[in-house]
């Protein structure tokens, strides 16, 4: 590929990816921005940014953060354990599991959420952060099981056998061989799981019953109320933490193999 076409690809890519983000950013700082103004006329003073310090938003951000972290960590544990167990099962069960996991990931939240709502309410978890966490874990575990299966499948099982042959105990195989190899993958998995939880809306609304308030829930309220300036601002705030997580992931994409 020539230098020029490479440049062109990057430019086109930047245009496609950044234009919507730039428009959101412009909207976030403009009090009034009406047709046919290309650039906002009145920019928001400090007052509009005070909205960010609103205790509701801050509390929602904290809830979102802890939910995401817990979903990432627990989803990683569940995902790797399930994948490890299933890779040793018979081919048919394996296949069924992969399909089932994929289904958990893509099942329409509006459709599966109603059922989850009943389950969580029955357990007394309706309207609690714990209930929402369990609900977020459903798609996250599905996704991370597939991710873990990709990793475990591509790891040379030979190393494990070799270590055993050389006299390593089972525990040593884990602590000296497998875990060091897996540690960076765990980190990626936690980030992926956290991302899934961070953006959840329908499951949070159904299981949280409006009582558990996360950033996407607050954002939906703002967008529904037609307050686009505050909505765009909240949207950008909502996008920042995942961006940091993504930086970590992108560095690692080449190694993760076919995660899905």
């Amino acid at each position: 590929m020539t230098h020029a076409t490479h440049r062109f690809t990057l430019l086109a890519l930047a245009g496609w990816v950044l234009t919507p983000i730039v428009v959101l950013a412009l909207r976030a700082v403009s009090l009034s921005w009406r047709y046919p103004q290309i650039m906002p006329m009145a920019t928001a003073s400090g007052g509009a940014f005070e909205a960010l310090a609103d205790p509701r938003l801050v509390a929602a951000a904290a809830t979102s953060f802890w939910l995401a972290l817990a979903t990432g960590v627990l989803g990683t544990v569940l995902g790797f354990v399930t994948a490890r167990l299933v890779t040793r099962a018979s081919g048919r069960l394996q296949q069924l599991t992969w399909l089932g996991a994929l289904f958990l990931v893509v099942a329409p939240p509006l459709a599966s959420g109603v059922g989850l709502q009943v389950v969580m309410l029955s357990l007394g978890f309706g309207g609690t952060v714990l209930g929402v966490l369990l609900a977020h874990l459903v798609p996250a575990t599905g996704y991370l099981t597939l991710f873990a299966a990709g990793i475990l499948g591509s790891m040379q099982s030979g190393i494990e056998d070799e270590a055993r042959t050389l006299g390593a105990s089972r525990l040593q195989v884990w602590t000296r061989v497998l875990l060091p190899q897996l540690a960076p993958r765990f980190a990626e998995s936690v980030v992926l799981g956290a991302l899934i939880s961070w953006g959840q809306l329908a499951l949070t609304l159904l299981v949280g019953g409006g009582v558990v308030r996360t950033l996407p829930v607050e954002l939906l309220s703002l967008v529904r109320s037609g307050n686009d300036q505050a909505g765009a601002l909240a949207a950008l705030v909502l996008s920042l933490p995942p961006l940091l997580g993504l930086g970590l992931l992108v560095r690692a994409t080449r190694r993760t193999g076919a995660a899905l």
Partner: peptide, 29 residues
Amino acid sequence: RVQQSPLGRLLAVLPLAVPHVAAALAALL
């Protein structure tokens, strides 16, 4: 085209960070 370009890879995955509601609002605007 971008598999060798860290900048390109970072750009390409940016939308993952933007929640669906936010992306829809951007499309509307």
